[in-house]
Design a protein around this nucleic acid. Structure first.
Lengths: 143, 143
DNA sequence: ATACTTGCAAATCGTTTGCAATACC
DNA sequence: GGTATTGCAAACGATTTGCAAGTAT
């Protein structure tokens, strides 16, 4: 079942989460997730993705970028990472993992999963369940 | 050395970080840090604090609330916690600690320091130093 | 054909800023 | 008195929304 059409995987990916594979969603998926199954690890803001889209001759409005990123996030294709007030990053790596955040440059970087380990985790307050644990290591780039 | 004047501690507190103890800064300090040395543990947004101030008959503009919260944060009296895009929380607990975040209600709660323990922490990427490690446990309130 | 998507511009939200009036030392 | 601080309103950046036009099934 190896598709011969390019990006057929992406079409399936979108369909499988109940989103119509429209021209712009496909184009953005290609930028975000890469042409084929290859796993990319990207952290993008809406602005960045918009810029990239334009560079690649994809005409999309910023509003659509936002809507698409939010839909993808709701569908579980992306994960939102909040590090700074007033800026949202979307992470193509949906697996459990944590982040380095370079405060000066605003860059975000995945931390390999094996290199962080929690020895002790508190119980969730009663009446609540843990949805996710986010660890952000804030860095200062020296001199 | 037990001061007899109420809130004299707050005046000192402000002076010690180089901020003039103005009427509004004192009033806000009282709301944030409590009347006397007592340690309060508060997580407020600018809006919340503004509301509280008004309720207590303190006339401050929202702009001043923002400026004050930022000054206090820069001065090390508060700590900013980012959990959601588009909303900033300020924490009166400046010591090293982590947070529970109730996603549904938007409430933030301190995690006792002893109940979290990192067994392994990655090395900072070369050329960078760790400024701070933030752990946020996102919770879902059940049923 | 019909429901879902898109683009655009306007609206909104949280936050910051400029500047004249005011309070602190 | 001189400088720091405040309030107000306007400015701001990021994000969302309403609606008419376009597109997927």
């Amino acid at each position: 079942m190896t598709g011969t059409r390019p990006y057929s995987g992406l079409i399936e990916k979108l369909k499988s989460v109940g989103l119509r594979p429209t021209r712009q969603r496909l184009a953005l998926s290609r930028l975000l997730f890469g042409g084929d199954g290859e796993v990319r690890d990207r952290h993008v803001t809406a602005e960045q993705l918009h810029g990239e889209a334009l560079e690649n001759g994809i005409r999309v409005s910023l509003a659509t970028i936002y809507n698409t990123l939010n839909q993808f996030t709701r569908a579980g294709l992306l994960r939102e990472v909040v590090v700074e007030p007033g800026r949202s990053y979307f992470d193509t790596n949906v697996a459990d993992h944590h982040h380095f955040f370079f405060e000066d440059s605003g860059r975000l970087m995945d931390i390999p999963d094996e290199s962080v380990e929690l020895a002790r985790l508190p119980d969730a307050p009663s009446g609540a369940t843990v949805r996710r644990v986010d660890i952000i290591i804030r860095l200062e780039e020296e001199e």
